[in-house]
Design a protein around this nucleic acid. Structure first.
Lengths: 237, 237
DNA sequence: AACAATTTTTGAACTAGGTTAAATTATAAA
DNA sequence: TTTATAATTTAACCTAGTTCAAAAATTGTT
């Protein structure tokens, strides 16, 4: 009964809350500038929105310091993220979208689907917990699992890992990674790791590939076992 | 190549064009008042929008007289209607929405799906030509079949007809009709027709039901054959 | 033909979201 | 500790779409 039939929030408000949530995840309080950059808008606009969101009790804003979500704001953010990730999975599974295409479409639809729609695709997908990039899907009642895996950039030569999550929304990056053989649940063996933030040499699906440290940082993995590998560049550090 | 990548039109503009199209269908030029009523907005707003649409060359507007779509405007309107009707059918077929629920959801989504999405559901539905209410779905290139059937209100006792189209968006009306047994492709025999705009007595799926003239006017049918029926009220006119 | 009623248009004002430029506050450096 | 730089906020203005009230044009009725 208390279905919290809230959410007469505009797409703009929903979007801001979503990125505040994401920024808040990796750190503490969210700055005007960081928000503006993510929203591809001006700092002035972000500042105004901070005030508006604070008036709606969706964030707590300390001027010149930053903002953090209130419980109400976090609830809205998680609902939007739930919509987004459910949609991504649905587009992938039911409509055959590639994992590089789902984000953009979900981005537009997430603000416009009804709870009915959400429930129906949730049921059709058999109540999934992960989206096509391995990110956790918040539950209807606003809880969410912590993101899985540790960065591939921190893996050491000899490690044998499984890909749990790929943290990138850029379609061309995702296509590039897919072409290298990177996919969820796929296995990767770290062969070498060049020092000074250099690239990693990996074995992915029988093939040997090289991957820059930055991109590797967007791949999150879980260790399977550690095996001995040739010599390896681990000598430098 | 000339994919006419048009459509940087706002949802509001798309909606106005859609209802201009629909009003234009059953008559000539569209008045400010009629438009305002359908859009549930003020005449002032409709008047302003007329000017804006005329500036964009989407309608031709003769002040104090009315407006009609230009070819460009009609194209946009048909694209929106195509989105709407494809979505209705998709929601019905793929997600199990009832025919009373599809309109509201499609109404919100129609402005936000990509051409990609449109193509994918079109393909998944095997290039359908009719939506769940029997309305024709415009083709991608902007052509549309004329609406099918003649009004049940004009059918005469003794006629045996098939339901081709039901013209109503009100969920409760649609549920009511469904409860009476009215459905697309269903058979109806007209038993009696009371004069002075009175109700019709019908046989639908073995059951005898009575239906007001107004509601009957929203059901469009095709004659199957004419059979003799008791006496019938056809005596009065 | 004149006047009343209705429809349409215009004008002033509001909202949400955005911009750019200026003012303010915080932070880092000498 | 003062000063320079960077971040944030405020101010003034823009656009799309809305409202209400007033003005203008059209239509209908004697």
């Amino acid at each position: 009964m208390s279905k919290s039939a809230s959410r007469p929030f505009s797409p703009a408000v929903e979007d801001y809350l979503k990125v505040v949530y994401k920024l808040q995840q990796s750190g503490e309080s969210v700055s005007t500038n960081a928000l503006a950059k993510k929203m591809k808008t001006s700092a002035a606009a972000a500042s105004k929105m901070f005030k508006a969101l604070a008036d709606m009790k969706l964030i707590e804003h300390t001027p010149y310091y930053g903002a953090k979500l209130t419980p109400a704001g976090e609830k809205v953010a998680l609902e939007v993220i739930r919509h987004h990730r459910l949609l991504e999975l649905y587009l992938h599974q039911a409509l055959g979208y590639g994992w590089d295409e789902v984000d953009a479409e979900a981005e537009k639809l997430e603000h416009h689907i009804s709870e009915e729609f959400e429930d129906r695709i949730d049921h059709l997908l058999d109540y999934p917990t992960l989206d096509p990039h391995g990110d956790p899907i918040p539950t209807r009642d606003g809880t969410i699992e912590p993101p899985r895996g540790t960065s591939l950039a921190h893996a050491e030569p000899g490690e044998n890992v499984v890909v749990l999550r790929v943290q990138d929304h850029d379609p061309s990056v995702l296509r590039f990674l897919a072409e290298m053989g990177v996919q969820l649940k796929g296995h990767i063996t770290i062969l070498e790791k060049q020092p000074f933030n250099g690239p990693l040499t990996l074995r992915i699906a029988e093939k040997e590939v090289t991957l820059g440290r930055e991109l590797a940082g967007h791949i999150f993995v879980e260790s399977r076992e550690t095996i001995e590998v040739g010599m390896g560049g681990a000598a430098w550090k």
